[in-house]
Amino acid sequence: MSDNPPLNRRQLSRELTAASRATAGQLINRVGPDRERRAYRIGFTGPPGAGKSTLIAQLAAARAESEARVGVLAIDPSSPLSGGSILGDRIRMDEVADSPDLFIRSLPSRWAHDGLTGNVAEMLQIMDRHHFDEVFLETVGVGQTDHAVKALVDTVVLVLVPESGDSIQAMKAGILEMADVYVVNKSDRPNAERIVGEIEGVLALSTGSRRGWQPPVVTTSATRNELGDLLGALASHRAWTEANRDDLAWRRRAERHHVQSVLNQQIAEIAEQAPVELFDASGAEIYAHFLTHLTPPGD
């Protein structure tokens, strides 16, 4: 992939910041047909403490070493008390320190309410425009995040640890069935084999619409720098996607989600900025207020 124009990090960085701070009114202007060239996107989800950050750093470094241009968008939790956050522990890892083909941006979850918003979709498109080959998106946790990730990325990886029994229980309720690859990290700890078995059990019973993709369950140990079969599993899913996925339908669904989240954001902003007396008015008046404040693209 070395025929790309060289990466202008400063430029990319500023564009990402602008996108992260854009209001819905600004974002709606950029909604439109997908770009031709798109990075392959892998989303990572899973409970805190599962070692996602270390795993992603190692994976990203491994991929960057084979001359792919790799980007990481990583979301860290914002403090519910102050709104501030400590970001980017992953940047310290030796693996990522020197790689010229690797770019990492850390985001507070405040920018990504309930998972992901139009800002993140916009940021992913910026990565496309800068000719990234692969982009990893790291989210804060499981649950509603999962659905949003699914709409934005090509492969969803769920990272669990041997102690993730509760998460497996949630899986049985159908919440976490939608990953494409399952990883049991810190597999040097006891109970790893049992958790693998539990996951495989749930997947066997699941009747979700996977259209023939059998999600593998791989074990890794980030502390031992063992990515195990993870690289292989990711390559397999990518190959399967390219052979079996209806690309146009997928892109449309992704764009629908993008538009949906930007519009939701815009509605939320209008509601927050409206004088509170508005809500004494009739339904029709409230509705009219919203309609007049919805900014069509180009304004």
Binding site: S78, S79, L81, S82, G83, G84, S85, I86, L87, G88, I91, R92, S106, P108
Partner: peptide, 14 residues
């Protein structure tokens, strides 16, 4: 770093 976080900033500590 902790004080800045508690003041609402997004902080990265190297």
């Amino acid at each position: 770093t902790l004080a800045l976080r508690d003041a609402g900033a997004d902080v990265i500590y190297t």
